[in-house]
Write a protein that binds this DNA or RNA. Structure first.
Length: 432
RNA sequence: UCCCCGAUAGCUCAAUGGUAGAGCACCCGGCUGUUAACCGGGUUGUUGUAGGUUCGAGCCCUACUCGGGGAGCCA
């Protein structure tokens, strides 16, 4: 009985006759010899097909099979230093399920517009394969991290009756007799869950109808939002840096091959160890004031170029805390030592990826929170359930939101977040 | 919403206002060690759309469409 083996497990089967099932990644023929690179989703293996070792129909058909033809090949697996990956299959039998002509994405160069138009096929490329496997490892690491620390995963709704923060533009959808919005954050719901379960996190898709056109923005992206009862800004900062260090360590352990495909500088990732550098807003403002290229004015939020200037000073993510209350959301608690500031933190990823985490201690006082809602002219009635959390057993609590695609882009060292999600949604792209 | 850039063969790109080209892909032939193989031969066009200037427009002008980069906003 010949065993079907995945490419990633081949090394356990050297010397055996094995069968690989996959797609033709590349074929180069040399007279009476074909080299077929076959990918099966777990990796790529070279299969050597000598004319004299296989049925003549198979040899002939393989010579005309184009890229991405679906094939199964069987033969003796042996180690060979000449083969990419170090193993190759000396084929004796095989089947071409479908012989393909004219696959749109060749191993040559393509423009980004063309690739995005063919994203459903672009997924098969080596580079996308590597990125999506890193993304998977990041997601798994996140769930492990929180599970090990006693957090409970609580899903927040996608349909919401109103804006969570009242700032971003939301997507409207008809909802029977009323209008609903696609969520821009699960945070308020996470706060409710934290009062019920202690330590929780939500992890799901998030939507912003902002007409952003940058390499850091998507209209649909995944956000992780942990929330802890009886917690402070300090607790959240510690959690954030420990989590990021854990994620990076897990990716380094489980996705070395993929990082190699992406030509990622591993030494940069190996430096990502807690604790991370911390700057107060005031300290960061001082740095920017002395920087010739910055147009920053004290009191403003940092622009994207400012964030790059700040993050370039460090070899790991930097935590910037205690921003002026004017530039931050209504639910953030004021710093008792300086009421002009919020107890909040942004984590800026290295290498220009921008803000990957935004978090804060939440305002837990009913009257202060109500005042904030009025100041921001938010619809008070819509927040009654949220205010209930301050009416019935209010406690200090804190949490943050992590942008998954920005984190993946940062770890992979890729330019644009649209490559860090299988099917990116941007202002001018809804397909495929 | 604002600023900048782009659109020519299936793909990536070239072409001083004067005959629309190359590489790759694809097809045929050759090759028992290729790594995006190589060698020889062959096929491939409503130059994004609509107007305008000109003897003549891929090239200049206007509008539009589609897309890309950035700002703002944010993760």
């Amino acid at each position: 009985m010949i065993e079907v083996v995945t490419v990633e497990r081949l090394k356990q089967h050297v010397g055996q006759t094995v069968c690989v099932r996959g797609w033709l990644y590349n074929l180069s023929s040399k007279g009476k010899l074909h080299f077929a690179q076959v990918r099966d989703g777990t990796g790529i293996v070279q299969c050597v097909v000598f004319k004299n070792n296989v049925p003549p129909e198979l040899f002939e058909a393989l010579g005309h099979a184009g890229q991405e033809s679906s094939i199964t090949l069987t033969g003796l697996l042996r180690e060979d230093p000449r083969a990419p990956g170090g193993f190759e299959i000396d084929v004796t039998q095989g089947e071409i399920l479908q012989s393909v002509q004219g696959y749109p994405i060749t191993p040559k160069e393509h423009g980004i517009e063309y690739l995005l138009e063919h994203r459903h096929l672009w997924l098969r490329s080596r580079r996308t394969w590597a990125i999506l496997r890193v993304r998977d490892a990041v997601i798994t690491a996140i769930r492990r991290f929180f599970d090990e620390r006693g957090f409970v995963c609580v899903d927040s709704p996608i349909f919401t009756p109103n804006a969570c923060e009242g700032t971003s533009t939301l997507f409207e959808v008809p909802y029977f007799e009323q209008t609903a919005y696609l969520t821009q954050s699960g945070q308020l719901y996470a706060e409710a869950a934290a009062m019920a379960l202690g330590k929780v996190y939500t992890f799901g898709p998030t939507f912003r109808a902002e007409k952003s056109k940058t390499r850091r923005h998507l209209t649909e992206f995944w956000m992780l939002e942990p929330e802890m009862a009886y917690a402070t800004l300090e607790d959240v900062m510690k959690l954030a840096e420990e989590m990021l260090a854990y994620i990076v360590a897990q990716v380094l352990e489980r996705r070395r091959v993929e990082l190699g495909v992406l030509e990622r500088d591993l030494s940069k990732l190996e430096r990502i160890q807690a604790p991370f550098p911390r700057l107060s807003y005031d300290e960061a403002a001082k740095i920017l004031a002395e920087h010739p290229e910055s147009t920053f004015k004290y009191g403003d939020d940092f622009g994207a170029p400012d964030e790059t200037i700040l993050s370039n000073r460090f070899d790991r993510p930097v935590l910037v805390h205690r921003y002026p209350k004017e530039v931050k959301a209504f639910y953030m608690k004021r710093d008792p030592e300086d009421p002009s500031k919020c107890l909040c933190v942004d984590v800026l990823g290295s290498e220009g990826v921008g803000e990957i985490i935004g978090g804060s201690q939440r305002e837990d006082d009913l009257e202060l929170l109500l005042g904030r809602i009025r100041e921001h002219q938010l619809p008070e009635s819509a927040f009654q359930w949220y205010l209930d959390l301050r009416r019935y057993g209010s406690v200090p609590h804190a949490g943050f939101g992590l942008g998954l695609e920005r984190t993946v882009a940062w770890i992979c060292g890729i330019e644009h977040v649209r490559e860090a999600i299988p099917f990116p949604r941007t202002i001018y792209r809804l397909t495929p």
